[in-house]
């Protein structure tokens, strides 16, 4: 069973727009923007990973905090997609994350993200007890997404330590200080979320060389592997021994949106590893899953046939050892 932790789940709301008015300054008449299409889905990085795993028939449990009416909708969606749900309920309301996807600019959406409900200390204690129970069944743990208010910044570090104590490999799929602190617990794979900053800690990620240097630093701090997106269709995987560059030979015009693609990448890697593929083949499958999701109208492409079809377009190149 693969356990995913999404401490700050969300209801993802996508709106597709033909255009965005050039002048968005407040006016007396207000501004009405009509969507040509919309989509609502349970979300948060770990939940997205679980959804793709479940679509491949892999046993997965999603954990985190749910609250209010939005939490009910998230729970229902998660269960309907075949994911086992073990959430802690708290007061308040889960966040709704809005993405505006404008025709012709699909890979540069406009995001509006809420903060999420505050987690009280008693709920954190209950979560930890449930987490420890679930660890007994887990083969991998995925710690994913931003921390909600009330959760200490070293919480992922604590969760990673508990998993390490049980010899369960951890995939760290988050960013910022919470990710940097958890590196000390030697996660198996780190997929830093650098969407907003294009930096990893104090290191810029503009060029291939900078990405490799940042990956090496993450590995030096304790991770076995670090996978960093280099550009929209390329990822660089760094281990202690080697560096690989994965490239999907896909025109950007094929992409309908990018939201969820990095979660599909992580999930695809775990699908590969769970099916006994080696690391490189697993990352290739993850890349194929990410590309298929970016090309899909739905948030995630759950069609294994379409993912398989993308595999042929993923190339991998190995660089010299560090």
């Amino acid at each position: 069973m693969i356990l995913t932790v999404t401490l700050n789940p969300a209801l993802d709301k996508f709106y597709w727009l033909d255009y965005l008015p050039e002048d968005l300054r407040p006016s007396e008449e207000g501004i009405t923007i009509r969507a040509t299409k919309s989509l609502t889905s349970a979300g948060g990085k770990g939940i997205n990973v679980s959804m793709l795993l479940a679509a491949h028939g892999i046993d997965t449990v999603a954990m985190g905090f749910l609250a209010g009416h939005t939490g009910q909708i998230i729970l229902r969606d998660v269960l309907e997609r075949g994911v086992s749900a073990s959430f802690v309920w708290i007061e308040g309301e889960n966040r709704t994350n809005v993405a505006l996807i404008i025709r012709g600019h699909e890979y540069h959406p406009i995001h509006i993200h809420e903060e999420g409900p505050s987690v009280p200390p008693q709920a954190l204690e209950l979560f930890l007890r449930k987490y420890e129970r679930m660890l007994r069944r887990a083969t991998y743990v995925v710690l994913a997404g931003v921390l909600p208010p009330g959760v200490p910044v070293d919480f992922y570090k604590e969760l990673a330590r508990k998993a390490k104590d049980q010899n369960i490999p951890v995939v760290l799929h988050t960013g910022g200080e919470a990710m940097l602190r958890a590196l000390a617990e030697q996660p198996f794979l780190v997929k830093p979320d650098v969407r907003e900053t294009l930096r990893l800690g104090d290191m810029p990620l503009r060029t291939k060389e900078e990405v490799i240097a940042a990956g090496r630093k993450v590995v030096a701090q304790g991770a076995s592997l670090c996978l960093i997106s280099h550009h929209l269709t390329g990822d660089i995987l760094v281990s202690k021994e080697a560096v690989w560059h994965f490239e999907a030979k896909v025109p950007l015009s094929a992409f309908r949106k990018l939201v969820g693609a990095d979660d599909a990448l992580v999930a695809g890697i775990l699908v590969g590893l769970s099916q006994g593929k080696d690391l490189i083949e697993s990352v290739k499958y993850g890349m194929a899953a990410a590309v298929a999701s970016a090309e899909a109208e739905e948030k995630l492409c759950l069609d294994q046939g379409k993912i398989q079809a993308e595999l042929a377009r993923v190339e991998v190149r190995s660089y010299e050892s560090p």
Partner: peptide, 9 residues
């Protein structure tokens, strides 16, 4: 089955 693991201690 409903894969809901909500439970009490």
């Amino acid at each position: 089955l409903r894969r809901e693991l909500t439970s009490l201690e």
